[in-house]
């Protein structure tokens, strides 16, 4: 966890973005995340969460300044940036595009130009970390949904990213899968950004939370404090799920 404190992991200032058809998606976002932080990006559907995530490795580029791990998201930096930012998408089938699990996990390391032995080592390591080492030769269509989810994470972790961005990681997972994933995320020592509208999961995995609504960042603070503020949540299209009461914020 000891990293040089000077460079923030994410440094976004005054970022705005419109889709080509003119739909505004992000509106003057400012956000700084320090290395080692775990941040939940909360908001209802259509708030611009995924759009913001796609800016973090330069897949989308809006107006304003985005620097990730000290690198601005300009074309010259994208190669280096995409090796250091691991983005896990919502639908695992979008991300498992190779025909066997092993090849899929090896895809990133091979693109990094690593030696075959190093690729092999990393593939074995991340498959083992996620408990998938026995499924290495399986084609993705023969994995269960939870296995697919973990497989996408394995493919990204094999690249040893410094910043891990997860888009709705808990969606469609059964309770055991949710818990296992949360435990796993707690073990990782990279900076974590979790994009979600699953409030209990945000509380479980992240210490800080940012609420995004209508393309604007409307609140930022410790997760416990944000989740305790029922009015804030309801004003931004979020609410406690039935039976959920967050612990009282400290102080």
């Amino acid at each position: 966890m000891t990293r040089a404190p000077a460079v923030p992991a994410v440094d976004i200032s005054h970022l705005s973005f419109r889709y080509p058809d003119g739909t505004p998606a992000l509106d003057d976002i400012c956000l700084t995340i320090q290395p080692g932080e775990s941040v939940a990006l909360l908001g209802p559907n259509g708030a611009g969460k995924t759009t913001l995530a796609l800016h973090l490795n330069g897949l989308l580029r809006g107006q304003g300044r985005v620097a990730v791990l000290g690198l601005q998201t300009v074309p010259a930096n994208l190669g280096a940036l995409r090796q250091r930012v691991g983005l896990v998408f919502q639908d695992p089938d979008d991300q498992l595009f190779m025909n066997t699990l092993g090849d899929d996990v090896a895809f990133g390391p091979r693109n990094m130009g690593l030696e075959p032995e190093e690729v092999e080592r990393r593939v074995a390591e991340s498959l083992e970390l996620l408990g998938l080492d026995r499924l290495r030769n399986r084609p993705p269509h023969r994995l269960s949904y939870g296995q697919k989810r973990r497989a996408t994470l394995a493919g990204v972790l094999a690249m040893k990213p410094d910043l891990l961005v997860l888009d709705e990681p808990s969606g469609n997972l059964d309770p055991v899968g949710r818990r296992r994933l949360a435990e796993l995320l707690a073990q990782l020592d990279c900076t974590l950004l979790v994009v979600t509208h699953d409030l209990p999961y945000a509380l479980q995995t992240c210490r800080r939370a940012v609420i995004l609504n209508g393309g604007r960042a409307v609140a930022d603070g410790p997760t416990t404090r944000i989740l305790a503020d029922r009015h804030l949540l309801e004003a931004n299209g979020l609410e406690w799920p039935f039976g959920f009461t967050p612990p009282a914020p400290p102080g």
């Binding site: 490795n57 930012v85 983005l87 998408f89 639908d91 895809f107 493919g155 690249m159």
Partner: peptide, 11 residues
């Protein structure tokens, strides 16, 4: 989305 995922891993 697949294209994005590929680019994200250095394709």
């Amino acid at each position: 989305r697949v294209h994005h995922a590929m680019l994200g891993r250095g394709f």
